[in-house]
Design a protein around this nucleic acid. Structure first.
Lengths: 105, 105
DNA sequence: CCCATAATTCCAATATTCTAGAAATACAGT
DNA sequence: ACTGTATTTCTAGAATATTGGAATTATGGG
């Protein structure tokens, strides 16, 4: 993963509201959750919510599937996993020891 | 971890420059890296660099130890691990199946 | 105490993000 | 086509972040 992609994903998650959205979707699992339900759950205006969801979709952390008039949102696990891998990779690349952190990755 | 702490850490990493700083420190491993060397490496003005480092320290992702006139910066692995754990935790909490993502955590 | 090096803080300009109401669009049922 | 529900886009003001030069502080050597 390129550093700009990683930064974009981290930035997307680095906002309380968007992180709440993302967590709700992670909790919802494979079945996902419609935009409307997110709105009920998080109590934020539709337009605000829509903007935040758009950010998450733009960086690939969230996918959407239309089902009639409702849009179902899904957390994209692969995208998150790629980000996590990026974060823990190259640990101590410029150093010798450091076994702990390597196993943590 | 509280969601606000997680969001703060993600926001700190969600900026190209700060992510570059953090990665350089991760690569440097236990020995860390002085602020001045980061400046040489990343070619950014001292004040800008200092601001960014301060953000990373504020959220606990980076620690600093003074050694004479130079300040050595270290990536805090525990802090990062806590963040990663937070991100992959509670996957599918509201659903039944979903084994893949669980094992990924 | 004075100097040099390392790094931070002060300050201000610029840029970006966040928020949300209002208007517009998407879709399905009748 | 008309209506209602779901959601997005338009728009713009307020808030926050980013940047970097200049001044300041921190530390140790002579």
């Amino acid at each position: 993963m390129k550093i700009d992609d990683a930064a974009a994903r981290l930035e997307a998650l680095g906002n309380r509201t968007r992180l709440q959205i993302y967590r709700a979707l992670v909790r919802a699992g494979r079945s996902g959750m419609p935009v409307g339900r997110l709105q009920d759950k998080l109590k934020i205006p539709a337009s605000t919510l829509s903007h935040h969801i758009k950010s998450l979709v733009a960086v690939g952390l969230v996918n959407q599937v239309r089902e009639a008039t409702t849009l179902i949102c899904h957390a994209n696990y692969d995208s998150m996993q790629g980000l996590v891998d990026f974060l823990v990779s190259e640990c101590c690349a410029d150093e010798a020891e450091c076994k702990n952190a390597k196993t943590a990755a």
